[in-house]
Nucleic acid binder design. Structure first.
Length: 523
RNA sequence: GGUCCGUUCGUCUAGUUGGCCUAGGACGUAAGAUUUUCAUUCUUAAAAUCGCGGGUUCGAAUCCCGCACGGACUACCA
């Protein structure tokens, strides 16, 4: 049994698309499960589409998500170099080999000539294809006399190398997800393998590199399925068919609404990220938002992505990376494309946020606190006047409040009253709750807080049991007014826990301020 | 247009050797319970005649054929 070796081979043409992230994830899960190697290879054979920073972005994104590599452009390995532009000298000889063996030929047709040809066919409602039927009419080493070909080559005329597809043979690709897929060579065109700029195309570079890097399984997007027969033929032409990797073509990630492939624009339109990290277009300066900056936790993104096109075969939905590695199987990858669902993504994040340790959450909260002028120190007691809080206090607040949120970014709006006293009181809540006699009740609350031990049970007994219930008062009315006084609105966590947390002095100060501000209501 | 791939609740999907499927779970939605409030949580409900039409079979979401629809590909891009 051959050692499992898989690769993730993106092109550095921009930020890594979330579909690409999923492809990387599936490769990673498969490699880890089988004790194999995971390789990061950069396919930058198209120099016109190269975007600076894209390679670093890819590495940073995958690192953030916990997808690790054993070999690659950033860490090296025994099969390098791992950037195709650095492998440029390698490909030439393989193109030559193919020509020598009659599997490929030189073609001198200029791009303009090909365009003209396509237009010509189009005018007759036909499609031009450079193949066994048309290559005799084109300018290539199959149609031109040998001395003419040599003359052109010697004179430095630009040329490409095209694959010479045999006429009318059935080529079967065995796909691990879809089974056997058969196509006839007559329908396939003579793909360019080697470009006039001296670089190989994807097809050549891909096969050569996968072979040289001893890749055992090619797990890639479904968009590659139509060219898979070409790849199989290349392995055959090179005589590498016995070590040809196994193929698995992943279903596509679709738009949440309507149909079609998920694209960058969809994210902008529907308000969710299509990229793992924020990306700033170096040319336009335009920012595309990423999951990380939106407050998604890497574990949640991984879990969500894993389930978009795969399932463990049972009802389990929450899985860590380690569990995914154990449970992953190519057999359970679905065949049809999956529509991206924002709501489910949020739910995953909520679930993982609950698992997130309070200390870690507090750490994520720090920038928001700073932004609002709140200082956090390690060894100070809580002091509202100086807006400085003990870090343990922040941890406590996070722990108390996290079940209410899906994103760390919601922390401030949910917890600001733990740090800052309300300056305004929600008018609707005031109208509904601040009834006549309320200032008296609130004064009584202050009195109770001043007399009983400042502990949950003691306050509960004195306030809820003795005072409110003892006097047959409306619990909702009093407690909501108290909340209004302390928080400024009538939403929030358990009132007594809140009071205990912010402390006796601050609570009393806030109630007093509410009494002063709101005053007595006459009617 | 051509080739290939696909098609189970609104969405992700279970269903892999045809019977245990009067099609299960999750998200979302609705109702209820809990809570002093909101949120969380819990319970329940609605939601797929398994794309459509034929066949094979005692029996089909599951096998076969046809059709429809959707998608991918069809560059000296990957």
């Amino acid at each position: 049994m051959r050692k499992v070796r898989v690769r993730f081979a993106p092109s550095p043409t921009g930020p890594l698309h979330i579909g690409g992230v999923r492809t990387a994830l599936y490769n990673y899960l498969f490699a880890r499960q089988n004790g194999g190697d995971m390789i990061l290879r950069i396919e930058d054979t198209d120099q016109t589409r190269f975007v600076p920073g894209a390679e670093d972005y890819i590495i940073e994104a995958l690192t953030w998500l916990g997808i690790q590599f054993d070999e690659g452009v950033h860490i090296g390995g025994n099969y390098g170099p791992y950037r195709q532009s650095d492998r440029k000298p390698i490909y030439r000889q393989y193109a030559d080999q193919l020509i020598r063996d009659g599997w490929a030929y030189y073609a001198f047709d200029r791009p303009e000539a090909l365009d003209a040809k396509r237009k010509e066919y189009e005018a007759q409602k036909q499609t031009f294809q450079y193949d066994c039927n048309t290559r005799a009419d084109m300018q290539n080493s199959l149609s031109l006399p040998a001395d003419e070909v040599q003359r052109r080559l010697d004179s430095g005329e630009p040329y490409v190398v095209r694959f010479k597809f045999p006429d009318n043979i059935d080529i079967t690709v065995h796909d691990l997800i879809r089974g056997d897929v058969t196509m006839n060579s007559r329908l396939l065109d003579d793909k360019v393998l080697f470009k006039s700029d001296g670089m190989p195309t994807y097809h050549l570079a891909n096969i050569v590199d996968d072979h040289l890097m001893e890749v055992s399984h090619v797990i890639r997007g479904e968009e590659w399925l139509p060219s898979a027969p070409l790849h199989v033929m290349l392995y055959r032409a090179f005589g590498w068919e016995d070590t040809m990797p196994q193929f698995a073509h992943l279903p596509l990630l679709l738009k949440p609404d309507g149909n079609g492939k998920l694209s960058k624009r969809d994210g902008d339109r529907l308000g969710f990220p299509v990229f793992p990290l924020d990306w700033r277009n170096p040319e336009t300066g335009e920012i595309s938002s990423g999951y990380r900056e939106r407050g998604y936790l890497p574990e949640a993104v991984v879990n969500m992505l894993a389930l978009l096109g795969w399932n463990p075969g049972n009802d389990q939905e929450l899985m860590t990376m380690d569990e995914l590695i154990k449970l992953f199987s190519i057999e359970h990858i679905s065949k049809s494309g999956a529509k991206f669902n924002v709501e489910k993504a949020k739910w995953f994040n909520h679930e993982y946020l609950q698992k997130c340790p309070d200390e870690q959450l507090a750490q994520m909260f720090l920038p928001q606190l700073k932004e609002h002028g709140i200082k956090v120190e390690d060894s100070r007691s809580n002091n509202f006047q100086l807006s400085t809080f003990n870090s343990q206090y922040v941890v406590k607040v996070c722990g108390m409040m996290k079940e209410r949120l899906s994103f760390p970014s919601e922390l401030w709006e949910q917890t600001h009253y733990f740090f800052v006293a309300p300056t305004e009181y929600d008018p609707k809540a005031v109208a509904k709750r601040w009834k006549p006699g309320m200032t008296t009740h609130m004064a009584k609350v202050i009195e109770i807080l001043n007399t009983v031990p400042f502990q949950y049970d003691a306050i509960h007994q004195a306030l809820l049991e003795d005072y409110i219930k003892g006097h047959e008062l409306n619990i909702g009315q009093i407690m909501n007014s108290l909340r209004l006084a302390v928080v400024g609105t009538t939403v929030g966590p358990d009132m007594l826990t809140l009071v205990i947390t912010i402390g006796k002095d601050e609570t009393i100060a806030r109630i007093q301020r509410a009494i002063n501000t709101l005053g007595e209501i006459d009617n």
